[in-house]
């Protein structure tokens, strides 16, 4: 980047002296604008990443200074059957719920909204608004007012009308009602965002395609959706899937706030948080973070391969 920025003025025909000054000026401006960000990026992102990787080969109890080298022992500990692998199972269950559900619901909403002719901006905003809410706040609302376990919780009030006894939603493991709380809070928070992505995708589809399809005898809404809309949304769909999956991997806030350190539903990040911050075991904590980062990378690359994400259409 530095070279292309610097070279541009150099190709302009100009007196040698001016050219030199101009070059210096542009280079200076370049660093002035890019420098602070680059510095921030290096200090707050790259150095910690590299530090984490180094630390993950070290026994680091109550310290973040590497030195007590243990090779790949931390990785071996995590990858033998135990709580970390259990947490990956939890993640898989969670992803199996949340990814298809969010995908289907946000696509459905986008399709409906695309048909609406009145108050479009209003509906769009209404569904998008929850995205602006923090996970922590939403989790607390879900935990304390909607799904609390006593008689004045909203959900219990509603089922009380039908004479059903109070259910402690978050504490019941059989049936696992806590999944209902976890999944609904995330759905509420993120559907609007993906709906907007789908809406943008829908509006990019040329109306001529639909006209042509109608001429060719596409009879009903299902046929147009199946053969026109959905294939045309491929790029958007792949992007949405990818983001959903990465987000599911990074699930933390709602699990942390709703269930704390519960071994029966603890996604990888929550486990690593308690390992590093609770146990002060930064060696295993960073090793787990590296494993997770690698997993996300592999899944992303594989998905890109399979669906052709980022390839020119």
């Amino acid at each position: 980047m530095a070279t292309s920025g610097a070279l541009a003025p150099a190709t302009r025909p100009a007196p040698a002296e001016r050219r030199r000054r101009g070059l210096a000026g542009v280079t200076g401006a370049f660093w002035l604008f890019v420098g602070p960000f680059l510095l921030g990026l290096v200090i707050f992102v790259y150095v910690p990443i590299i530090w984490s990787v180094v630390l993950s080969f070290s026994r680091a109890q109550n310290t973040v200074t590497p030195g007590d080298w243990v090779g790949i022992q931390n990785y071996i500990d995590l990858l033998t059957p135990g709580p970390f692998l259990d947490s990956l199972v939890t993640f898989t269950i969670f992803a199996a719920f949340i990814v298809p559900l969010t995908f289907a619901l946000s696509l459905g909403l986008a399709l409906l909204l695309n048909q609406v002719t009145i108050l479009r901006a209003f509906f769009r905003s209404v569904f998008f608004l929850p995205t602006a809410c923090s996970y922590v706040v939403a989790s607390l609302v879900w935990k304390l007012s909607i799904f609390n376990g006593v008689r004045f919780g909203l959900a219990n009030k509603v089922i009380g009308i039908f004479g059903i006894e109070n259910i402690p939603w978050l504490a019941t493991t059989d049936p696992p009602w806590y999944w209902l709380v976890i999944v609904t809070v995330r759905l509420w928070l993120q559907i609007g965002f993906y709906m907007i992505l789908f809406l943008a995708g829908l509006q990019r589809i040329s109306p001529e395609l639909y006209e042509a399809a109608a001429v060719d005898g596409a009879r009903n809404a299902w046929q147009t959706f199946r053969y026109i809309t959905f294939p045309q949304l491929r790029a958007t769909s792949v992007a949405v899937l990818l983001l959903l999956l990465i987000n599911a991997y990074q699930a933390f806030d709602e699990f942390f706030n709703l269930l704390g350190n519960s071994s029966f539903a603890r996604p990888p990040l929550v486990y690593l948080y308690y390992t590093a911050q609770g146990n002060q075991d930064y060696g295993h904590g960073t090793a787990g973070a590296v494993i997770l980062a690698l997993l996300i990378m592999i899944v992303t690359l594989a998905q890109g391969r399979i669906f052709g994400f980022g390839r020119a259409e």
Partner: peptide, 8 residues
Amino acid sequence: ACGGGSSG
């Protein structure tokens, strides 16, 4: 989605 190392 695209950032975040884990430093303590």
